[in-house]
Design a binder for these strands. Structure first.
Lengths: 132, 132
DNA sequence: CCTAGACCTTCCCACCATGGCAAGGTCAAC
DNA sequence: GTTGACCTTGCCATGGTGGGAAGGTCTAGG
């Protein structure tokens, strides 16, 4: 199976498959005589794993760790759990930050008349002063 | 006031102040004989505005628009409100995405024993198959 | 007067994940 | 044998920020 097909099958773009190979996240693919990359079922499995991990927001480094844990059939599930938990915590922190932004801004939006007049608490709040 | 002091006063790093100047977000600062940049109260005001907008998660492009709206004292508050509302919507979308990640992963975490045994729904879920 | 150190200058490189484009090779179908 | 769909490598860009190098400027103290 060549790269385009592998891309469709896994939802990882051909571009990114090559990139993952270049950074060592996946082993270098086999090549045909044409020099085209050739993907096995096993390769697809690995790419699918990576895509799902990315869909959950894991970073490349974390995915690298997850792949190692996946390969190690003797590792304790607690090792995986710890990694996943710390990612949940990171997601929670990001969500909290975004929610604070959202709420602050939403209050300002609510306070803004949104009419033809220039007075606007949103701009005024941004324009407080040099500091503070 | 030179750049380091302006950085402390506004919470925008000297590095970023220069960057903002280079991309035209702030006008080129006055220079002293030494070629050091020289910041006025007015400049600080603008930098403070930018920092607060960044703290609310606005992109550089949006901040550019906000600065224009700030400068235009005749503009309707509705113009500002529309911009802010669309940013709130963008924040909501990001938050939703992160929450979906978080919840999916959290369910897997809850389902994982986290003990010495290797069985782990987290890894199993990532390893579903080449597709799906 | 000289030096140390704290500041400033410009310029280039790095991150992370991804896309785009260009110049060229390969293969299948018509 | 040409067309068109695919592949190859390589370089550049994004956005917002930090790091560092190599060198100029200023101030305080000996």
């Amino acid at each position: 199976m060549q790269i385009g097909e592998a891309a469709k099958a896994t939802g990882v773009s051909a571009k990114m498959i090559r990139h993952y190979e270049s950074i060592g996240l996946v082993p270098a693919a086999d090549r045909r005589d044409s020099n085209y990359r050739d993907y096995s079922h096993h390769d697809l499995h690995r790419l699918g794993f990576i895509r799902r991990a990315r869909d959950l927001g894991f970073s490349m480094d974390e995915i690298r760790d997850l792949l190692k844990l996946w390969a190690d059939r003797a590792r304790a599930s607690s090792e995986v759990k710890v990694l996943a938990q710390s990612h949940v915590a990171a997601l929670d922190a990001k969500i909290k930050l975004l929610q604070e932004m959202r709420n602050t801004l939403d209050h300002l939006v609510e306070a803004c008349n949104g009419d033809h007049r220039p007075d606007c608490p949103i701009i005024e709040s941004l324009a407080l002063g040099p500091l503070h």
